Computed example of a mutant assay.
Amino acid sequence: VMIVDTMVAHQIFKIIEALDLLGVKTMLIGIRPEVAQTMIQLGINFSKLTVKSNLEQALLSLNLTIDTLE
């Protein structure tokens, strides 16, 4: 997502909440600094989310590597 406004942020979190109801743990990956700053300014609460800077870190946090996925 290139630009995050209140509508985009609201939709993202509605999707995350719906996935949570299904038992899916959601992880946000690769949020650019300016997008993260906008989301913070909008008052978005990240306390229930896992946020990783890139796919490699996300996979490592799940004890996976690209090699294990091939």
Rank of each mutant, 00 (worst) to 15 (best):
L21P: 03
I12Q: 08
Q41R: 12
I12L: 14
V4D: 03
H10P: 02
M27T: 14
V51Y: 04
L62I: 00
K25D: 02
M27E: 11
M2I: 12
E56W: 03
D20N: 03
V51T: 03
Q37T: 14
A36Y: 14
L19V: 03
K25V: 02
E56G: 06
L55G: 11
L69T: 08
V1I: 12
M39L: 14
A9S: 11
M7L: 14
T6I: 10
N63D: 14
L19I: 04
I3F: 13
D5A: 03
T38Y: 09
N45Y: 11
A36L: 15
A36M: 15
K14V: 01
I12T: 14
Q11L: 07
T68W: 07
L21I: 01
I3T: 14
L59R: 03
V24T: 02
K52E: 06
I40D: 15
M7K: 13
L21T: 05
D20H: 01
I31N: 06
S61H: 12
E70T: 03
L21G: 11
L60T: 08
A18D: 04
I29H: 02
K14A: 07
I16F: 01
Q11G: 05
I3K: 12
L62M: 07
N63C: 11
I29T: 05
E70A: 05
G23D: 00
E34V: 09
K48I: 00
N54H: 07
I40K: 15
I40H: 15
L60S: 11
L62K: 05
T50S: 13
L19F: 02
G30T: 08
T68R: 14
I66A: 12
F46K: 11
N54G: 07
I3H: 12
I40N: 15
Q57F: 06
G43Q: 05
Q41D: 14
I16N: 00
I31F: 09
A36K: 15
I40R: 15
I3Q: 11
K52C: 08
K52V: 02
P33T: 02
D67H: 09
L64T: 05
L55E: 10
I66C: 04
L21K: 09
I66G: 02
N45W: 10
L62S: 04
I44F: 06
I15F: 00
I12D: 07
G23S: 01
I31A: 06
S53Q: 08
K14W: 01
V1G: 12
N45L: 10
L19C: 11
I3E: 13
S53P: 06
I40E: 15
L22M: 05
M2P: 10
A18S: 09
V4W: 05
L69P: 11
L28K: 01
V8M: 04
Q41F: 11
F46P: 04
D20P: 00
R32F: 10
L55N: 10
L59N: 04
N45S: 14
I66L: 10
G30A: 14
T68H: 13
K25G: 00
